[in-house]
Amino acid sequence: MHKLLSSRITIFWLVAPSLLLFLVMICLPIAMSGYYGMTNWRGVGSYDFIGLANYSKILFHDEVFWRSLWNALLLLAATLLIQHPIALLFSILVTNAGRFEKFFRTIFFIPAVISIVVTSKMWVSVFHPNFGMLNKLLDGVGLSALKQDWLGDPKLAIWCIIVVVMWQGFGYALLLYYAGLQGIPKDLYEAAELDGAGRVTLYTKVVIPLLTPMVRVAVVIAVTACLKQMETIFLMTNGGPANTTQFVGNYIYKTAFSSSLYGYGNAISVIFVIICLIITVIMNKLFSKDVGEF
């Protein structure tokens, strides 16, 4: 058996299926996208080869594309700076909630379990200017002046979307940090207490640094989720009003399937893949530092 497994040919054929799938399902489509991106294909019928015209148009003249990318970064920043610290805080609270631990753990994870379609449509109703709960609530507490057309106002809409996406992803972030906390040995807490560390010092100097591996995982997940964001946007505003809440995924869909610019849509997706690769490389560089064993 060992002899068989050490044979290069055996190894090759064992790896081959997944390698083949990877090539056929990922590399080939990207290469084909790259090719179609150089055409003016409209989805039906013949097309011409137009070189890099689509690519240069996206990079230098397409405001919506950059706006979409900017929105993704905005969402990422909000996720990392607002959602994650809160999730970390709550996971610490949940861990120390004693007999309510299970209860809170379930409550906080519920949004992540419900279908995105349901939660998105629910938030659309909450934000509805006439029968939405938010405006009714503001009316109820006498703050009618603060009532807004939440998703219809170009300045506000993106922030409403960000709140919703953070809310939807909160459960997962919490779960990750919660799992990370479970993995930290109890004796470290005792050791810190014996050394006279207070609660704050315990968490800031001992627990949170030890959570770094989990933070990495959470950040990677957050980055991919923010860049890939599509379904919530599609369901809530479809990028409107006037593309102010557009995200790249939805923009590609809209370009290819609503405007029938398949060539152009393919070009956007190729550029997007490249941007994602660059971000991945940067993240790997940032995370290459090791935390050490415990």
């Binding site: 219809g152 170009p154 409107g240 006037a242 809209k254 405007s259 029938s260 610019l261």
Partner: peptide
Amino acid sequence: TDEFKTKVMEAHQKLFG
């Protein structure tokens, strides 16, 4: 074309908005 359609509709959305 569909591209024309999208542009026309977006222009109207901006006008009404």
